[in-house]
Amino acid sequence: MKPDSKHMISNNFPESDFFGAIQDEHKMALRETLLDLHYKESQNNNKYVISIMSWKVQSIAASIAIFLLVGASFLFNMNDSMTNEEIFGQYYTTENSILTVRSNTAAEYSPVNDGLKYFDQQNYEKALYAFELAPENVVAKLYAGFSYMELQQYDQAIEKFKNIIDQKDNLFIDQAEWNLGLCYIITNNTDQAKEILAQITNSNTIYNIRAQQLLEDMGNN
């Protein structure tokens, strides 16, 4: 039988099995080694595919390129590397509100819930006003950071994300670190961006792979 996901995600989640699995440190270490090897191999394969594709289309591309270069180079400044703004545009996505996954708390009145509702409506100024009414709330800080990003007020966003990271021991550090990195990119603080992204690549978060790709893209500049 395949592991029964319905069983695992039901209220009868077998916690003892789960705890047993994560306590097996030897097996966990072996799995991390495997995942790391597999990830690196996948990255190499992607580069290989791109290289082969480039080789195959080389002859066609060459003739087109010569034609374009002759004509277009008079008109445009040819530049292959992406600007920080382009990199940011490629990686930045508007976050979804957590209201959708915490419907049980959404009905309760609080400045944070109010702010999240405004955030969902893309009314970022009102959202910020509401979030400021709960200055110690981590969710409010995080979504205030996102709101500032949407309003392109990156310095204020940086302040919010740094505050979350400094606070430690909270559930939103991963998101704060990733978005802080993006804010550093768009504000041309490249060194600081690289530093935080390198930190993310050494973590086990969902942003790990994205951070590695982003660093590679930045490396091309």
Binding site: P3, M8, M28, R31, L35, L171, I173
Partner: peptide
């Protein structure tokens, strides 16, 4: 079957925040 379950647990555990 046991290893499939363990993989599901361990892989997803590693995707959680450090705090969790």
């Amino acid at each position: 079957e046991q290893e499939e379950r363990v993989r599901l647990y361990q892989e997803n555990f590693l995707k959680l925040s450090k705090e969790c």
